[in-house]
Design a protein around this nucleic acid. Sequence first.
DNA 1: GAGGCGTGGCT
DNA 2: TAGCCAAGCCT
Length: 300
Amino acid sequence: MTAMTATQTPPASLHDPVIGWFEQHARDLPWRRPEAGAWGVMVSEFMLQQTPVSRVLPVYEQWLARWPRPADLAAEPPGEAVRAWGRLGYPRRALRLHGAAQAITERHGGDVPSEHGQLLALPGIGEYTAAAVASFAYGQRHAVLDTNVRRVFARAATGIQYPPNATTAAERKLARALLPEEDERAARWAAATMELGALVCTAKNEDCTQCPIAGQCAWRLAGKPAHQGPPRRGQTYAGTDRQVRGRLLAVLREAVAPVPQSALDEVWDEPVQRARALDGLVADGLVEPLAGGQYRLPLS
DNA sequence: GAGGCGTGGCT
DNA sequence: TAGCCAAGCCT
């Protein structure tokens, strides 16, 4: 509500400059090419959840070459997905992508579903990814609210430097209000606003001189007031279970045969935390314990 | 709704 | 240097 009143210009006046800028400056990314198909779009969205484009690119190419259709991935053990995931981080995404491929193969005849609700029902697909796949792969009209778009809207429309930590109802309402009426144009708008946030309206060191809507940006027009609210939740890493899990899984990814407990013991010297991390990996289905104290990536 | 969950580049 | 940040999801 307050967000809407902050825009002194009608929403439609933003569409042309942003989409026009996108047509001039969009990166040529493989998942944006027609040949990527819905599966390529979906794979890219999984990989891009919290991981930068530059690190996704090589893994994406290898993944699609090896598993060109969902059924190809579904036919392999989940551990192979975890291994191919490499060092992209958050390896549970690999497991969920494998699970999604299985569900697509079993429930959708091997084709990535186009309905938002069916996408949302797949493992690893939340509100953002469901909207992104439906929009980018199928040209549908959805509010696609990722961290880039939320930041662009926070600045341009609401006049604040950063959006709230969690997506709010007000943000969804604003995003829907800004959406172009026509399907294909809405999909272009979604991709364009995301790209603008990724390349120009970045979290730090934004470059307003390159922004096609700088003249209408509420935040800029207000003098770029600094972020108020609660600090954005930081991520600690050193010394956490996450770091231990990462080291344990790295050993198992590289191994071609089951690994003895002793090999895992070498990656972390604190036994209680080490055991907790390993238990967590097993509980998550990322590691399969075998008889005799051996471990491997899951075969099922 | 807060917290857990990887990894590496950049400032 | 030590955070900060990167197309979130799940519990």
